[in-house]
Design a protein around this nucleic acid. Structure first.
Lengths: 203, 203
DNA sequence: GTCTATAACGCGATAGAC
DNA sequence: GTCTATCGCGTTATAGAC
């Protein structure tokens, strides 16, 4: 933002790339906030531009299209979420994987409410890329569940696909409730969900 | 629908109300289908008109605005769902209420896939009325859970709000999976969910 | 009761000045 | 690199003919 003497180097074009990346980051940030509070349909190019303090045309200089901006924002929040969850899961032994998954998901989305709305919009409307594929979500979790059962030596029959889908939906609902009510205790909710899952998983 | 000789009374203007109601019904039906396959944002006045075989202006003759059409459609699917679920719940003793609720929800939405998409759009975007209030959904279910526990004489501590929210989210996810994969066995999924709930509820 | 015609607006995107 | 200006399209909604 501020202009230091070094930034005055007009000879090197690479310098401009740096400020361009800052602009891209700013635009993504503005878009996340806009989608969070006005929804995907209410997020127009002009409002993104207004939020960033530039014009529509200027936005389209940094991104080829409006969809590209939204896609970048979508990818950004999704990467942050999956990264956080993966880190949490890898930090515990296999038996604790499902519990870590649930708590990491709920915790991350609680700490980043703006990301939350963006993600649900993306799932519903295919905001960024094409159609949303639900198996991308439940398959990793199902693997986690299988690993936990194996680590505990449980061999009984269980529909892990449905269990994974159920857990995913429950997490979404808990996060949505938190979004609607700041006073909702997501920690206690996570505890109850984890208890239900563990009881089913290791039965 | 069919015209009996009595309906031929041309003197009474009330007769016209009958065909108008048929048109309204048709427009609502078209809108449900449109929202189901193109989403709320992709449902425009012209497409509704095209689907009904009339013009945009004709649509706005029967409804005061586009939002009124969508609201009517939203109300229609919601009434059908709640009616079906309420009927199913009232047909069983209190201990079976939660199970009946889960099976009725999943069953109804499986039989009416077009309704499903409309409902989720309405929840996400406030398609019809204003903002969606989650407590409208979990409170009735929480009452059901409390009644079931009381009928069984269970007095242990349990967060029924979170359990109700969890069940709702799980149902949504199961229905969504069915929407994405015709081969998904919703009956088995309902069985697993019911088992999880009963185990938690009566513990 | 349904139509044609059109108003009035917001949208995404482009061209070209600077 | 960012601007102004504008195009072309789709939208909701209205006015008035028939």
């Amino acid at each position: 933002m501020a202009k230091s003497p070094r930034d005055q180097d007009t000879s090197r074009p690479r310098q401009l790339t740096l400020t361009e990346q800052a602009r891209r980051t700013q635009l993504v940030e503005v878009t996340i906030g806009l989608v969070a509070e006005r929804g995907y349909a209410g997020t127009s190019l002009s409002r993104i531009a207004e939020g960033a303090g530039i014009t529509k045309a200027a936005v389209l200089y940094h991104f080829p299209s409006k969809d590209a901006v939204v896609s970048a924002a979508h990818e950004h929040v999704l990467t942050a979420l999956t990264g956080h969850v993966a880190e949490a899961v890898e930090a515990v032994p296999p038996e604790g994987g499902p519990a870590a998954y649930v708590r990491a998901m709920i915790g991350h989305l609680r700490e980043h409410p703006r990301h939350t709305r963006m993600i649900v919009e993306a799932m519903t409307q295919g905001g960024g890329d094409g159609d949303y594929d639900p198996s991308l979500r439940w398959r990793p979790l199902a693997s986690l569940l299988a690993a936990a059962r194996q680590a505990r030596g449980v061999t009984s029959e269980l529909d892990l696909r449905t269990l994974a889908i159920t857990i995913g939906g429950a997490v979404d609902a808990i996060v949505a409730e938190r979004l609607a009510d700041d006073g909702y205790d997501t920690g206690a909710a996570a505890d109850l969900l984890v208890a239900m899952v563990d009881r089913t998983l290791f039965a």
